[in-house]
Design a protein around this nucleic acid. Structure first.
Lengths: 343, 343
DNA sequence: GTGAAAGCGCTAACAT
DNA sequence: ATGTTAGCGCTTTCAC
């Protein structure tokens, strides 16, 4: 095929290669002939062969847990991050290889590099557990470029792009205080996610800063699912009725919505008796009643930033310093946290 | 690397290859030595080189429109279908190559095969427009295996996996009639999606079958976005107040939710004055007030089925008959369509 | 059952 | 500026 193009254009195969890959110098006129010949024979070079010859897969891997039953992600989170990564990868000529990891599957990330399936990878939904730490350490040791999204590992300087969850939580607390709330609770997620820990720390700091009381009983625990939010409604309602709680910040929107539904059934008026704020500002918060205040996280940008930085590092390993980006978040105020909050 | 494994095992490179790829016959004992050697040297074959030699990319392409601003998909739809495809591909040893198509980008699907980036592909969100038809015709002509998801093209026997939207709509109409509703409207999406046309046909059939009146003014049009549902609230409210409408079926949940919000603002009590049913049964329908009745579509299964059938066809081109699968849907009844519907 | 060698379709020196 | 040639790391005949 390529040979026929070369013949038709009256040049060698090497020249065909040069023209089509834009590497090396060729006379304008020769290039034109080659292009025409390729056009006529409907020829395009095999990316597979190119990549093999170059010893680069041309793929950016995205590793993420199999979705069914994974509560950490709203589908919103997932779609946004992935789109951001997709855009950035595309602009840089990389293809996106999607790698689902099933729950019991070993985290053999380094193998993806050894088999040359990917040139770099982004990890979504990594957890701070020993097997994950080992897998990441192996990547690091093998000098395989990777980047974490929305997760970091204490003590390890891994590339990561995250939202500034702490700042968001502090802002939420300040907002509630400004609105006259004094007894602010926090519904958090599991500590295997660094976000959970960051938010808890910020929650305590913000309370301390304002001279407000920190009370352990006001910190509730869920697993980021709607259901666990729903299940905490009873405890929250009791505290509210006892006059010991007038606001709750939930660590994600799903739990906030579950809590909202549970409270509604228990007759607690959210937005009035109790102010409620979620995190993520996913697409569902506009659909609840009352609309849910939430901390907007730029998921699309997080994905884009992670891919851009990572691929830049791959393109230019020389001046590739490790990065640890925190993108700003923004509190979006809606009726669920306003004193005049109504339907 | 491979050479060192061969040396260590005391065999030729060809034998190493045979052992690791499981092709050809090797003595048990030899195989064991090779495996140990590979293990010791931490060697795994390059998938890139293998695929190059085999002239197969090992990738299943998934083509989908860039998400931002695409209303057709809820993120729910997207995540579910993709997960289903991912599971099936993985089981068959294929990797998933995600290919975002930007709005103005030419639909040059065939090139993905020519460049050997993919061995087969699944198209999500295809539209019935000329450029799409051309691109698909080119795939067909080149004998490139592909499968459509949730879309079909009249007159073309392309592989496709879809939900039985017509059956779902008929069931919804019957449900409403059984609940005493007599004046049923339909909020549809654009006709470039075959689903829209299928549903409209089924809507008319079901009405005719029941001897109920079909009135054009009761068919409203949106673009599958929440916003267009919201914008139709005024027209719907007017019809309801005029006693000319007591139920609406929306072609997806997003529009249903927009409509629900709009109606609420206009003081129409959904579930009572007006019964409302959406389509997709996405994760948000449990979060609205009242909860939204919806037609459940097995998106995960659709993705899985598409990938399985397609990859089976690739594995066995001999007996690969074109397929056109319709998966059953199920009406999930909630308060928005029940006579006693309340919060 | 195993080894030797050709070839997959490119890229990249090196030579001219 | 262009042609020649040697790989890239596998698979796969074809001998033995």
């Amino acid at each position: 095929m390529r040979k026929k193009v070369a013949e038709l254009a009256g040049v060698s195969e090497a020249t065909v290669s040069r023209v089509l890959s834009g590497v090396g110098s060729v006379k304008q006129e020769t290039a034109k002939r080659v292009l025409e010949a390729a056009e006529r024979l409907n020829y395009v070079p095999s990316a597979l062969a190119q990549r093999f010859a170059l010893r680069k897969s041309g793929n950016l891997g995205v590793i993420l847990p199999m979705l069914p039953k994974v509560n950490l992600f709203s589908t919103y989170y997932f779609s946004e991050v992935l789109s951001g990564i997709g855009i950035a990868a595309k602009r840089r000529g990389y293809d996106l290889l999607l790698l689902f990891r099933e729950p019991e599957e070993p985290r053999d990330y380094a193998n993806l590099f050894r088999t040359q399936k990917i040139d770099a990878c982004i990890l979504i939904g990594a957890q701070d557990v020993p097997s994950e730490r080992e897998a990441l350490a192996e990547l690091k040791e093998g000098h395989h470029p990777f980047c974490l999204v929305n997760q970091r590992f204490g003590g390890e300087a891994y590339n990561s792009v995250d939202a500034d969850q702490g700042a968001g939580l502090r802002e939420a607390v300040r907002h509630l205080l400004a609105r006259g709330r004094r007894q602010i609770g926090f519904l958090n997620g599991p500590a295997v996610y660094s976000n959970s820990r960051d938010r808890l720390d910020a929650y305590r700091e913000a309370l301390a800063e304002a001279g407000a009381a920190y009370e352990p009983e006001r910190v509730l625990l869920g697993n980021y699912s709607r259901k666990t939010g729903y299940l905490q409604a009873k405890a929250v309602a009791d505290l509210v009725r006892a006059g010991r709680l007038d606001a709750v910040i939930a660590a994600n929107d799903r739990m906030a919505i579950g809590l909202l539904q549970g409270l509604k059934e228990l007759g607690i008026r959210v937005g009035d008796e109790l102010a409620l704020i979620g995190c993520d500002d996913s697409d569902v918060v506009r659909m609840t009643d009352p609309p849910l205040s939430s901390i907007r996280v730029p998921f699309f940008d997080i994905g884009r930033e992670a891919a851009e930085r990572l691929l830049d590092a791959v393109a230019n390993p020389a001046d590739a310093a490790p990065f640890d980006v925190k993108l700003p978040v923004e509190l979006i105020e809606r009726a669920s946290s306003m004193p005049d909050g109504t339907t």
